[in-house]
Amino acid sequence: MAKKKKKKKVSPVKNQVAEHVEQVPLEHEPSVADDAISEQEKIAEEEAEDLLATNIVRAKDVHKIFKMGDEEVHALKGVDFKVNRGEYVALMGPSGSGKSTLFNMIGGLDKPNAGRVFIDEVDIAALSTFELAWLRCHKIGYIFQTFNLIPVATALDNVMLPMLFADVQQSEAQDKAVELLRKVGLGERVFHKPVQMSGGQQQRVAVARALANDPAIVLADEPTGNLDSVTGRQIIELLREINKTEGVTVISATHDYKMLTVCDRIAWLTDGAIERYASRDELEIKEGSTDGE
């Protein structure tokens, strides 16, 4: 109990989800044996320690195995990954390095086979589908390589959809959606459908949609993958701008070297593990030689 109090003190940012989660481990972890209790205490201690840091995303020893017929593909081999609040992080690595897999894990879109993933210090594995949906709705904004807009709905309706899930008043949602679309430079295309827009414009709608519920994190999976280099740069800069003005953490899986010029930190992923981190300053020289523009 004392541990719990301590936890509360050090985490003024705790929200409803986090508060609920405290009760969850009681159901999941048997508290029969003594060593189980000490284990729990150890974990609680570690967690309290980690809470002092400002990690908004934390992956701990994450493993993911895909089964393809008889073959097992070990996509993630114990990844440890931390992202600070307000950071712009690029996840880079060759195809098949587990980049997208890790990305899906930290987005709560897929569950790891082993290890734990925390978003805003909430263990994703401990959440019910209900709470997970709440988390996706309020804490995370997603941007996909293929845009994934609802094809039959207008830009406005697309941006309003997450707000509808959050039960925002219709008129309020509409005002906010228009404002967001204006912010991403689509103020005059509010009633256009995805098919009537270019790829770059569709991705802008997706950015506006990701921001609809004022998330703490924006996750972008290869946001420039389907765009030409000029449009791609615009999207990257838009993300940077949002990151600065709104204080939103941006995590982006990418192999677009243009991303390097704007992000704070790069995590290099090779063969299912994080090979190294690099800050932007260290990469300045390399970027100049690879961008080729």
Binding site: T129, R136, C137, N148, I150, P162, F165
Partner: peptide, 16 residues
């Protein structure tokens, strides 16, 4: 299906 997946990402519940 893709639309369903997207809706789930945006916070749509299974029951929804």
């Amino acid at each position: 299906f893709r639309e369903i997946g997207t809706m789930k990402c945006l916070g749509g519940l299974d029951s929804f």
